[in-house]
Amino acid sequence: MSLKPSVSNTDHAQGNLEAYLVIVEYGDYQCPYCGAAYPVLKELMKEFGSQIKFVFRNFPLSEMHQYARPAAIAAEAANLQGKFWEMHDAIYENQRDLNENLLVKLAEHLKLNIPQFEKDLESTELADKVASDFESGIMSGVNGTPSFFVNGKKFDGGAEDLFELLRENTES
């Protein structure tokens, strides 16, 4: 399966934004497997961040994870204040305690403008952004989280396997 739509400037990206290697993760903030992949991906970025562009798309499995969607919307709300990755990281680092209250606590901790943040949580625009990420996942053949795409192609391994792939690709 290939990634639809391809990565654009509406995506959240970090690392080397001009990199040839583009890794996209479809993730759910409450999914334990995404939680387990998170430190591995952090390590990956530390080692290869200058060589890859890493993109995160929301894929909240709301049937199973009641806080996945609110968390995704909270990260999008933080994005409006320039703190997407900080919120993304904070949610994964506190995944065990995830609930509605935690999201506001994290926003306070990140020194966000809280009245604005709370207003943005209600925004249909942010709900639509999360829904459109989810849709793109469905169109791209995502059926669980985390799912990874490397340069637009579905990657059949987990975060650890990405390490192997990168080591092979960067040894010249």
Rank of each mutant, 00 (worst) to 15 (best):
L3D: 02
K4N: 09
P5I: 13
T10I: 13
D11I: 07
H12C: 04
A13M: 14
Q14I: 15
L21Q: 13
I23A: 08
C31K: 05
P32S: 12
G35Y: 02
Y38I: 07
V40F: 02
K42F: 02
L44F: 09
M45C: 05
M45Y: 05
F48M: 00
G49P: 05
G49N: 04
V55N: 01
V55C: 02
F56M: 03
N58D: 13
F59L: 09
F59T: 04
P60R: 06
L61C: 01
S62G: 05
M64Y: 13
M64K: 12
A68T: 04
P70H: 06
A71C: 08
A71I: 09
A74R: 07
A75R: 04
E76R: 09
E76N: 02
E76F: 00
L80T: 15
G82F: 05
W85T: 02
W85K: 03
D89Q: 02
A90T: 03
I91H: 09
I91T: 08
Y92F: 15
Q95M: 11
R96P: 06
R96T: 14
D97F: 14
L98W: 05
L98G: 01
N99L: 07
E100T: 14
L102D: 01
L106G: 03
H109E: 15
L110S: 05
K111E: 15
L112Y: 03
L112W: 08
I114Y: 02
I114C: 01
P115E: 11
Q116L: 15
F117D: 03
F117K: 07
K119H: 12
D120C: 07
L121G: 01
D128I: 09
D128C: 00
K129R: 15
A131T: 14
G137N: 10
I138S: 03
I138Y: 01
I138A: 04
M139P: 00
S140T: 11
N143V: 11
T145D: 01
S147L: 03
S147K: 12
F148D: 05
V150K: 12
N151M: 09
K153H: 10
F155H: 06
D156H: 11
D161R: 09
L162W: 02
L162M: 07
F163S: 02
E164W: 09
L166H: 03
R167G: 04
R167C: 01
E168Q: 13
E171R: 15
